[in-house]
């Protein structure tokens, strides 16, 4: 099992007292499989994704990634985990505005110490970015920006891809095209995919789906 979550609880402090966002979540995902995480706004989907990515820590429970419980790891170890094991795709793309497309695509792989120019070339071609490698993010369309973000994630060949509403900022046609590309490339790399989405239509295209409601899996 690549990913296993056990009895995860998460609270956020608010003016009216702690808000219980996730309640006793148990979840697992095998290598090479894809799982859709659906739920209404505020149900805790993104929070769960951030906990798996090591961006935040749970208040209770365990998160086992590749056999290691990442809960309690220090900042440096979590940063290494994000560099080497996990790949993140955000709804807002979150590209690095000061770097051009080529540098953005290669950034995470080089940071992880796994630069692979041949694979990058393949990615750029498959993602339709070969003609815009010297452009900067602000000079790209939304669809192009999201394709760069996917390419950046996959360039490092992560074992787990975490995608948070990756097509949420795109129109339906562009979103479908981008998702097709992402699914086929993830499959090619053999990575597992955990994707947060509002859309039942998109969720149905993945191997499995779970639904979050008021912080619980239903």
């Amino acid at each position: 099992m690549l990913l296993r979550l056990h009895q995860i609880d998460k609270f956020y402090p608010t003016g009216e007292g702690p808000l219980h966002v996730l309640r006793g979540i148990d979840l697992s995902l095998e290598a090479g499989k894809s799982l859709a995480l659906t739920g209404e706004s505020g149900s805790g989907k993104s929070t769960l994704l951030h906990l798996v990515a090591g961006l935040d820590s749970p208040d209770a429970g365990e998160i086992h990634l590749g056999g290691t419980n990442i809960v309690g790891l220090n900042d440096t170890a979590l940063a290494a985990l994000r560099r080497g094991t996990v790949g993140l795709v955000f709804q807002q793309f979150n590209l690095i505005p000061s770097l051009d497309v080529a540098a953005n695509l290669a950034f995470q792989a080089r940071l992880a110490g796994r630069p692979d120019p041949a694979w990058l070339k393949v990615l750029a071609k498959r993602l339709g970015l070969a003609q815009v490698l010297t452009r900067y993010p602000e000079q790209l369309s939304s669809g192009q920006q999201q394709r760069v973000a996917i390419g950046r994630t996959l360039a490092a060949r992560p074992r787990l891809v975490l995608a948070d509403e990756p097509t949420g900022n795109l129109d339906e046609a562009t979103g479908d095209a981008v998702l097709d590309l992402m699914l086929s490339l993830v499959a090619e790399t053999g990575a597992a995919l955990l994707m947060v989405t509002h859309s039942n239509r998109l969720a149905n295209r993945l191997n499995a789906r779970v639904h979050l409601h008021a912080g619980r899996l239903v």
Binding site: D75, L78, A79, A80, R82, A112
Partner: peptide, 15 residues
């Protein structure tokens, strides 16, 4: 907004 993605990709806040 410019630093958070770099942090998410794998740099510590201290770095």
């Amino acid at each position: 907004p410019q630093l958070a993605p770099v942090w998410a990709i794998g740099l510590t806040r201290r770095h």
